[in-house]
Design a protein around this nucleic acid. Structure first.
Length: 886
RNA sequence: GGGCGGUUAGCUCAGCUGGCAGAGCGCCUCCCUUACAAGGAGGAAGUCACAGGUUCAAGUCCUGUACCGCCCACCA
């Protein structure tokens, strides 16, 4: 065992081993029948579009920390994993691959294409699951789901049918966002806006029956081919004479009416706007209000339709050029003005989106949203950080109907069938044999599929067996926590809220924790084009999974983006190595001894058998345990991990283990054994605390320690014991640390070899004399001293370096010449610092308001610090004077 | 046009309920001391963006300004 443990931590050697073992042991699996309290999280299912990126690694790590922490805290936990078919995204990925082979989806046909996508899904999913394994995530693999699983498909159909029955799903011809490249309708959310430098074309429309004309301004001249009116504001006095008249639409020679409507902004352009109900959302609404003719001049393929007359068949952007040129030729183009505006792009392929009229399925979301708003108002679900709640409300309150049909092949088929005889639609869970309207037997299923987010919206309950009343649903729904990114609050979180409330009559999760976006170390977004993308697998290979996880946890400050940095991670890899070596050192000294048990520790404490360092670290441990639990409770992963980092390295390793070395090195073997067993207790508790963050290394080391229990991952998480907090020990330890540090500083600044043992004279306050005498071995060891002499006056003659601390002053006795000037400089600098501090404190203590109004403890603390500062300054001054007069 | 973040060490960022300005990396000096050179000891480095206000006390709370970033929104 201990002799064979490697000198440096080698992550690759241990990671796969433990993961497999945990899984085999069944530790990942939830038990709905358990008597324990339950805790559940559903994984935001990654898209089967490719590999996991660092954002997934962050998201998964945070969830695993919560899950492991809760499991160790005695909960029966369910972390339900799965993947998302990601309709349009995945279809695009596969189409792009086919394109590389010169193939097209339409040539293959639907069936063959779907088969290829399924094959792609299998490999992508396998990659994703492998990566997740590497990350150490404690998923319940037995409950893994895919959004196209038969069970989930059943849930999708059930929801569709019920919403349709309740009048919340309808079919209709409306203006939708259309992506000509993907050849499908997309929802408002799937349109992304990008700024563009474009032009504003001013076009003259002759007024019918008059010599005069009006000028309209447009950013999209090609749409004029579909104009069916021009509009002015009813109160715009410039155009009152125009009201009730008509204009002649150039190029098309169509007479169209002038309408008045308040949607016209008088200040914009000329105040006259062309109205194209077929290709602009505003105009569509205006068209409905005024009963205007609706012309579709741009088709689903992005080409001009027959309705565009001479322009039919042209690409929409070609048509734009031609229209402009023709207008120019006819002298109807008055002005071309530079104009910057936002253009709508398809989220998935960045093609310019075309608003056009099309027959689609919609969800009437207002009634669903009302419930979802109320639930958050009532705090049934809370957001962390809470400001995201506002984002949620803002969107929910202004929600528009949701276009859910997609003209794709990859996804849930819409459960609607059209009758060849009467043309009516029948909506059913399973394929009906006859039309529900005319009993006709010739039915064709709607070729469209559902928006991928439709099935995602059901994820928290469809994965647990709904619509059946399963035990899982009873026990694990609602889930406790959802961890996800802010970028899908609307797409996903909002819709899960709506669907969960509608069909489960309860919110899907009580807390939504929003994690930040991963950026590079300069705060830039990671993107392929920037070339700053970091692959988590490569990172795990090079630094180990634990280092990656810990880095992500430390950087995960709620509400902010995460600037991922390799240099930062190097530091946390070193931390893992530090842990490794600390435990390794312990093992070298522990022999066959057992770890001190809780009861035994309580006894040791009561019987006063612990030395100062032990009382101190045990006390500190209680505080750190309490803080870690509290920070995790509040999703403050960065505070929790950072706190453990500091505690382990700078308290446990720097001081406690250094102190323990004395016990190990001593002649007293009984004492050595006790020291080892106690140290084992402290380190074992550290491993427990660290396990949720860095599961592999902690399990590996835990297994080396002699104790009962199978696995760290199911060992209890530490609980703070208030009665073990020992303020006196902490205070004494602080004094000791200060003295040791002062000696080290004096040595270092006088260039004394760190290894060289030198004699020291100590002049201490009477009250600390006994204490310091009892701690002599520690002081000697920590400060590399030879003999320590307690004196009533310090010798300052000869080869001496002086120093001060709260408990005692000292001189280092040297046998070689030191740099007096450097010593003087050091003292002066210290005096400078102390003076500033003293002045600040003096000012504060002289302020009657401070004395009167500040809490007593603050005043007392200030007095004490003042007292110390006065003494220190006096002593420093005396020493400096001594140096000045040789 | 609304809304939300940010501005703290050379870099990237912590700093929760106001009470002694922190971390990692980088930099300087010394040390391969039998856990760890992925290490140890020490050091330098800050007008906490700016201007007001509240308070005994402000990096922290309030108001405003500037700059940066993000989200939402139908100005053709």
């Amino acid at each position: 065992m201990s002799e064979t443990i490697a000198k440096a931590y080698e992550p690759a050697r241990v990671e796969t081993k433990w993961y497999r073992w945990w899984k085999e042991k069944g530790y990942f699996q939830a038990d709905a029948d358990s008597e324990k309290p339950h805790y559940s999280i559903v994984l935001p299912p990654p898209n089967v579009t490719g590999k996991l990126h660092l954002g997934h690694a962050l998201n998964i790590t945070l969830q695993d920390i919560l899950i492991r922490w809760k499991r160790m805290n005695g909960f029966d936990v369910l972390w339900l994993p799965g993947t998302d078919h990601a309709g349009i995204a995945t279809q695009n990925v596969v189409e792009r691959q086919l394109a590389e082979q010169g193939k097209r989806r339409v040539d293959l046909g639907r069936e063959k294409f779907e088969k290829i996508v399924w094959e792609w899904k299998d490999t992508a999913e396998k990659n994703i699951l492998d990566q997740a394994r590497r990350l150490g995530c404690s998923w319940d693999w037995s409950r893994k789901r895919f959004t196209l699983d038969e069970g989930l498909a059943r849930a999708v159909r059930e929801v569709f049918v019920r919403l349709h029955r309740d009048g919340l799903i309808y079919q209709g011809e409306y203006l939708v966002n259309w992506c000509p490249r993907c050849a499908t309708a997309i929802s408002d959310l799937e349109v992304e806006y990008a700024p563009r430098e474009g032009q504003l074309w001013h076009i003259r429309y002759p007024i019918q029956g008059q010599e005069d004309s009006v000028v309209v301004a447009t950013t999209r001249p090609e749409t004029m081919l579909g104009d069916t009116a021009v509009a002015v504001h009813p109160e715009d006095e410039r155009y009152t004479s125009l009201q009730g008249r008509s204009v002649l639409l150039p190029l098309m020679d169509r007479v169209i009416p002038v309408i008045t409507d308040t949607f016209v902004e008088r200040e914009f352009g000329t105040g006259v706007v062309k109205v194209t109900p077929g290709h602009d959302p505003n105009d569509f609404e205006a068209g409905k209000r005024h009963g205007l003719l609706l012309l579709k001049v741009i088709g689903e393929d992005g080409k001009m339709t027959e309705a565009a007359g001479a322009y039919a068949g042209m690409d929409r952007f070609e048509a734009r050029k031609k229209v402009v040129a023709d207008l120019q030729e006819q002298g109807l183009l008055i002005e071309i003005e530079d104009h910057s505006y936002n253009i709508g792009l398809c989220q998935r392929c960045e093609t310019v989106v075309e608003p056009l009229v099309s027959k689609q399925w919609f969800v009437k979301v207002k009634p669903l949203a009302e419930a979802a708003i109320q639930a958050v108002e009532e705090q049934q679900t809370v957001f962390v950080p809470e400001n995201y709640q506002r984002v949620y409300f803002e969107w929910m309150r202004n929600i528009h109907d949701w276009c859910i049909s997609r003209q794709l092949w990859w996804g849930h088929r819409i459960p609607a069938w059209y009758c060849d005889d009467c043309g009516e639609v029948t909506v059913e869970q399973v394929e009906p044999s006859t039309c529900s309207h005319c009993q006709g037997a010739s039915l064709k299923q709607d070729p469209d599929v559902l928006d991928t987010w439709f099935s995602s919206a059901l994820w928290p309950f469809s994965t647990m067996g709904w619509p059946d009343q399963t035990k899982d649903l009873e026990v694990y729904y609602p889930t406790q926590t959802l961890v996800t990114g802010f970028d899908i609050i609307f797409f996903w979180v909002a819709r899960m809220m709506m669907m969960g409330l509608r069909f489960m009559k309860a919110v899907p999760f009580s807390t939504v924790h929003i994690n930040g976006l991963i950026r590079d170390e300069h705060g830039k977004k990671m993107s392929k084009s920037r070339g700053n993308v970091i692959d988590p697998l490569q990172i795990m290979d090079e630094f180990g999974t634990d280092a990656l996880r810990f880095t992500l946890a430390v950087l995960a400050v709620p509400g902010t983006d995460v600037p991922f940095s390799i240099s930062r991670m190097t530091g946390y890899r070193a931390f893992c190595n530090k842990i490794w070596n600390a435990v390794r050192f312990l093992l070298l000294n522990l022999g066959d001894e057992k770890v001190v048990s809780e009861q035994e520790m309580d006894q040791l404490r009561r019987q006063d058998q612990l030395d100062l360092g032990e009382r101190w670290i045990l006390s500190r441990l209680q505080t750190v345990v309490a803080e870690t639990n509290e920070n995790l409770e509040r999703f403050r992963f960065h505070e929790a991990s950072n706190g453990l980092y500091h505690f382990f390295w700078h308290e446990v390793c720097d001081w406690f283990i250094e102190l323990a070395k004395i016990g190990f090195a001593g002649q007293d073997s009984e004492k050595g054994r006790k020291t080892g067993r106690f140290a084992a207790y402290i380190l074992e508790n550290c491993l427990r605390l660290l396990h949720p963050f860095i599961p592999f290394i902690t399990e590996e080391l835990w297994q080396e320690l002699p104790h009962s229990g199978d696995s760290l991952m199911v060992a209890p998480f530490p609980v703070a014991r208030q009665e073990w907090i020992d303020r006196a020990a902490e205070k004494e330890m602080e004094g000791l640390q200060e003295l040791v540090t002062a000696i080290r500083t004096a040595r270092s600044e006088n260039n004394i070899d760190p290894r060289k043992k030198i004699p020291l004279q100590l002049l201490c306050k009477q009250e600390y004399r006994l204490f310091l005498q009892s701690q002599l071995p520690f002081i000697k060891s920590l400060a590399q001293l030879e003999e320590v002499e307690f004196v009533s006056q310090l010798e300052t003659e000869g080869l001496r370096v002086q120093g001060v601390s709260r408990m005692a002053d000292f001189v280092l006795v040297l046998d070689q010449v030191i740099d007096i000037a450097a010593d003087r400089e050091r003292l002066s600098r210290q005096i400078g610092r102390s003076t500033v501090k003293l002045q600040q404190l003096q000012k504060k203590l002289q302020d009657p308001d401070f004395l009167k109004k500040a809490p007593q403890r603050v005043v007392v603390a200030a007095r004490q610090r003042h007292q110390e500062a006065v003494e220190q300054l006096k002593k420093l001054q005396v020493k400096l004077d001594g140096l000045s007069q040789p």
